[in-house]
Every structure is written in structure tokens, then in C-alpha cells.
Design a binder for these strands. Sequence first.
DNA 1: GTGAAAGCGCTAACAA
DNA 2: TTGTTAGCGCTTTCAC
Lengths: 353, 353
Amino acid sequence: MTSAHKAAQTNANRRATIKDVAESAGVSFATVSRVLNETGLVKPATSELVLEAARALGFRPNLMGRNLRSSRTQTLGVMLPTLIHPVFAECLQSIETAARLSQHTIALSTTDYDPLAEETASEALLRQRVDGLILTVADAAASPVLDKLDAEGVPYVLVFNQMSRQGKKKQPLRRPCVSVDNQLAAQQMVAHLISLGHHRICMIAGRFGQSDRSRLRFNGYKQAMQVAGLEPLAPLELPFNQTDTRRELLDLLGNRSRPTALFCSSDQIAMAVMRDARLLGFDVPSDVSVAGFDGVRVGQLLSPELSTVVQPTADIGRTAVDLLLQLINGEQYLGPALLHHTLRIGSSAASPQ
Amino acid sequence: MTSAHKAAQTNANRRATIKDVAESAGVSFATVSRVLNETGLVKPATSELVLEAARALGFRPNLMGRNLRSSRTQTLGVMLPTLIHPVFAECLQSIETAARLSQHTIALSTTDYDPLAEETASEALLRQRVDGLILTVADAAASPVLDKLDAEGVPYVLVFNQMSRQGKKKQPLRRPCVSVDNQLAAQQMVAHLISLGHHRICMIAGRFGQSDRSRLRFNGYKQAMQVAGLEPLAPLELPFNQTDTRRELLDLLGNRSRPTALFCSSDQIAMAVMRDARLLGFDVPSDVSVAGFDGVRVGQLLSPELSTVVQPTADIGRTAVDLLLQLINGEQYLGPALLHHTLRIGSSAASPQ
DNA sequence: GTGAAAGCGCTAACAA
DNA sequence: TTGTTAGCGCTTTCAC
């Protein structure tokens, strides 16, 4: 009965297991495990035998078994807003490459900037028992998901989100993160615009409520203006996914004392603004200068080339993986990694006429 | 002894399991499993009790256990050449979204167009026991990885790769795939160039050995030329990752009987060509027309806007997920899904002077 | 150096 | 309707 049942199973077109290999090699399946894990506790001859049997049977270890037993998955969860945005896509690429080099696989989820989706996605990843998480959240200072991860002691690293050394209300919020210094970078870009001779510079930004980065970049804008003794203008807040900016641009550029330069909180916005400004009959840069933030490749293909802050996207991903693996490894978190940005000066920003 | 050990375990800061929930709710853990899986075989009152206990304990099902037991992971493996290329990134985005809607998660791997990496990555995915694979390979007609998947009966769907209904040597090669009709699309774009008045049209393509798509698109080019009674020119083959095309362009455009239009096998190439042509002093489109293939968004932001074939990237991803889930479900494969492309006519291609 | 056996968290017969 | 039990494939003591 039992043996018949077993035979039927063995005959079935199922994958060979460690037991099959053991039987075929004439050893116990514990030995097979030892060989496969290269513990070095096995006699070379035996090892050879096992390997040969494994090859012959087309054995492929079943990680579900291993993972369950060892309660580690060698999997990193990655949760990003969207891959439509090349900055995230490229960062994911470098995360994946770095993870692969460290023998880890990637479980991916996107959230479309939706806090509800962040909750669902993180939960799904945790059910899979990922060893750690790399993620970008809408607002890292107020994120239920991050609170949860902290409470449960799940290792994670933020990318692009930038946590100051202490949170609000004097509570030091030490959330591991990898980013550029958003405020400084914005400040430098705006200073560049000022050095070109611009006085009325307006910032066009993603909604501050939806992006902590936008807020930091706006701070940098304000600081640059103040340092130069200029009056910061009210920012124009755009939903992150708005693609047509003509109405807003017309409002902004329609009157006499219009801004002569527009500092955009992302290249996406900057490119849309350049296109729409032109459609409205404004030349870039002679009627209005435009600068962006991100450093997406295509900015260089535009004419005029887009002046922008270049984030080291690939570095950010790679660094995040390194940091996360350290945290998983139990090492101590030493503080945010601020990577170097650069200014890429194109001709989309020039001296005002 | 045993109880002490158990207590120690219970006290440890480990996650609650189904057993903990059972104990806390005063039922057997089989009942908990039934409740969690909504089998509907449980008395509502009991169910309530269990759910309450689960909530109180912060229970989160461990999918490793479930997966091992049921030998299904609810995970789809995705293997793509690179996410730097927006076409793949956007397709991945739509794959992820579709998978999420169907309660599946994504395991991601990239290969950088390297057949060796394809082998390694697919093996890693199979060790994880993904339920199926969505992938783009360098050459779908000659792919050891696909041969392996076929041999082992692992469900998969190709994206962007386009399999003709029969393979070489009369062996029908029925590999599930979702793509546009590359040849037809290329033919139509070249026909468009011809209709503008171009006679000497040169194709600039990724290396044919590295891309079955390039080959198909070149076929379309040839066909369009022949239909119009024109002589196809020798194509210019570029490594897929070459970014500077000036040397080649100078060769191509340097002589009297130079082509008046360049049909590029991807937008990446087309955009580089536009930039480099301009750097070399050729105006686009008055000196030379340029057309691309892919339909990346940024093509519309260029000036002149890039004329291109638009692939329905998101549709391709969504369709691939649908198809893969069907195959996993044991349904029969009914043939390649050819999705509709469109021509996006910009001003990068115009009538020759 | 190798084998026997326990058990990771879960599902699904089979009993009751 | 619920409980008991046997594994899924693997790692890792503990013996020998």
C-alpha cells in the first residue's frame, strides 16, 4: 500500500529531491545536504559521487525547503512608487545587479505613490519573509509602514527618501536611508540660476504632501533665494502625474512681472514644462529658463539640453543593497548615506534678456 | 525539559505561527488554517474567534510553509535584459500591476542581453519554484533556456520576442509570446519614409546576432523597399549599448550618394543618431530624416519630435500575465498574441530637399 | 565522515 | 464542524 503509493509518486514526472539524489548515490540525504552546502565535512570521494548523481538526475535544490528550515530567504523586497519614472527603474536595475552579485533575489512591488498600496505591498513582502526591504515611501517622516518595520525589527533601507538625523518633536528618527542631499543640491541649482542673473525664480514642484523630497528641495530653493537677498516666490504645486502644464504655465508666465526662471523639482516636470512653454510660444531659454532635478539621461538629448541636478541613481541602489545586507547581518546603523550629486549644466537655463 | 524549551521559544521575539493562533483561540491549528484559507467549512463563531486571536497576536501567515506544502508559490519570475531601457521598465511595471491584481508576486532578474546570465538567472528563478516565467531572451529561435523550459514543462511567456508559427527546419516551434508584428510595423514605417519621397533609406540596427527583433524589423525594411522597387541598402549594425554613433554616421553620411533617411531599430538608437547627426552638422530632418521603433515617451519631448513605431508596452505586459496565468492553469496555448502597434509621426522625418 | 531523526509553518486527507 | 496526522524538501543537531 505505502510502497505502491511511493512508487507512483516516484514514477510521476516530478523533480528529483535531495532524497532521490541520496538514494541514487547510495548515501544518506543528510550527506547530500552537506555536499550541496559545501560544508567541507564530506570525504571528497563521497562528494564526487553525490555531485555526479545530482547531475544525472537533473537535481535542482528546492529553496522553499531550505528557506522554511533556515527561516531566511536570501530575498530582498523592493518597493518603489513606479518604474515608469526612469530614476526608479535605473535604481532598481542597480539594486538587482548588486543583489545578484550577493546571491540574493529580488521580490518587487510598486505602489504608485499610494500609501494604501504601500501598506498592502509591504505586507505581501513580509508574508514572503523577505530578509529585508529597500523602499521609497511617499513621506518617510510620517509613514505607518516604516513604523511597522521599526516595531517589528525588519531590516530596511530607504532610497531617495532623506531622513534628517532627528525627526519631529525632538525624537531622533534614525531611519536608514540613501539619497543625495536634496536641500543642498536644490540650493546649488538655484544659486546657479541666480548667478546667471535671474531674480524672479519660481519653483514648480510635486505636491509637498505627496513627497518629502519636494519639500526638501523647496527648502533649498528658499535658502538660495534668501542668501542672495531675493524674495522666494510661492511655489507651483503639481500632482506628481500631471502631464500637461499649459494652464498653470499660462497663469505663471502671463503677466508682466513673470518669473524669468523655473526650477522644477523633477526632470519629468521640467521636460513637460519645456515642451509646454514652447507650445505656448515662449522660447527656452530666451523667454524663460528651465532647470530640473534627477539627471535622467534623456535630458541630454533635448535641445536645449536640460540643466539639472544629477542624482547618482545606480550608486544609490548599490549602496542601499550594501547597507541592507549589513543591517541584515546585524551590523549597526551608522547614519544616512548622502551620496554626491552633480550639476549638469545644459542650455535650458541662460541669462535673462 | 521539552516544556522549558518550548517556553523559551514562545518567549523569544519570534513571529506568531498558526499554532500560536490556534492555542490562543482554543481550537486546533487545522481550524485556523481553514479560517485563513476561507474554505467556508468553519462555523462563523469559531471563525470570528480565530480571526480575533490572529489579529491580537499580529499573526502574519508564513508563505514559505504554505508554498512548500502546496508546491505553488504564487510567484511569477520575470527575466528581462535591462531596466535602463524604458520599454522593458514600463512593461515590467504593467506586469507587476497585473500580477498584483491576481494575487501574485514578482521575482525579478535582469540579464543585460547575456545568454550566460540568462542561464544563471533562469536557474535561480526555478530554484525558487516560481509558478511561471515572463521573459525576453536575446534570440528566441535559438535559446537553450527556452529549450530547458520546454523540456521541463515550466510555463512561460515571451515578451517582445516574436516567434513565427513554425521554427526552422520545419519543426513547429510553438513558443508562447506577446509582441507586435515587428516585420509589419517596420515595413509600414519604411513605407511612410518612402511616401515622403525618400529613396535611399538606410537601416541602423542592433546587432542581428543579439536580437531577433532587429532581424524581423530588417525584414520589414527590405520588404518595404522591394515593394517600392527600391534597392535595400546594407544595414548598419550597432552593438546594443553603443551610445556614440558619430564615427559610423560620418561614414554613412559623408559621401554624395548618402542616405536621406535613417530607419533605426530602436528609439534609443534613433535619439542618439539625431543628437550625433546634429553634432556633426547635419540638420534633422532637412539634411537627413530619422525614424525609430519603440515609442518611448521622451521621443515626443524632442524637437523635432521623433517619428516612431509605438509598441503597446503596457498591454504587452498585461497580456503576458494573463496568458501565463492561463498556461499555469493548464489551459491550452492558442498561438502568439500579436498586439497592435501604431505609427507616431513626428517631424524628425520629412520630405527630402 | 556519515546516518538518524527532529522540525521549520503550513495544507489536506481522514476520522470523529 | 472540528481534530489528528502525515508530510512538503530541506538543515542541523546528536549519535555512531
